[in-house]
Simulated scan of single mutants.
Amino acid sequence: MESVNTDVSEAAGTTSGPAAAEVPDAPTLGQILLAVEELWPESLAEEWDEVGLVAGHPLSPITRIMFAVDATLDVIEEAIEWGAELLIAHHPLLLKGVTSVAATSAKGRAVHRLIESGTGLLTVHTNGDSAVGGVSDVLADALGLHDVVPLAPSANGLPEEGIGRVGDLEDVMTLGDFAARVFGILPSVAGGVRVSGAKDGLVRRVAVCGGAGDSLFNEVRASNADIFVTADLRHHPASEAREDAVNDRPYLIDVSHFASEWLWLPAAAEALGNVLQDQGHDVEIRVSTTNSDPWDFILTPGGD
Rank of each mutant, 00 (worst) to 15 (best):
R221I: 13
A106V: 15
S136I: 02
P159K: 12
A271K: 11
R181A: 12
I227A: 09
I62S: 09
S43A: 11
G201T: 06
A71Y: 06
A45K: 09
L93C: 13
G210F: 11
G302T: 00
I62E: 05
V8H: 09
V229W: 00
G108A: 09
E116N: 04
R194Y: 07
G133A: 13
A231T: 00
E243Y: 09
A222N: 08
S239V: 14
D232Q: 06
S3D: 14
S256M: 08
P41T: 01
P294Y: 05
G133V: 07
A267P: 08
V287I: 14
I163P: 10
S100L: 12
D129Y: 02
T63M: 05
A12P: 01
W40L: 03
W262E: 05
G211N: 07
V75Q: 02
C209G: 04
T63A: 15
S130G: 04
I65T: 04
A102P: 04
A155T: 11
G108I: 07
D296N: 15
V193N: 04
N224K: 11
V203F: 04
R205F: 09
R205Y: 01
A259V: 07
C209P: 08
V255F: 01
D232C: 06
E47F: 03
E270R: 15
G144H: 06
F217I: 07
K199G: 08
R234F: 00
T28G: 04
E77V: 15
T126L: 06
A21L: 08
H235S: 00
I62V: 15
L169D: 08
G134F: 05
M66S: 12
P187G: 11
D254K: 01
S260W: 03
S136W: 04
A103D: 15
V166Y: 09
T15P: 00
R286S: 12
D248E: 11
S292P: 11
H125W: 02
E81N: 15
G211T: 08
H57W: 01
L299I: 13
D25H: 14
D244W: 03
A131I: 08
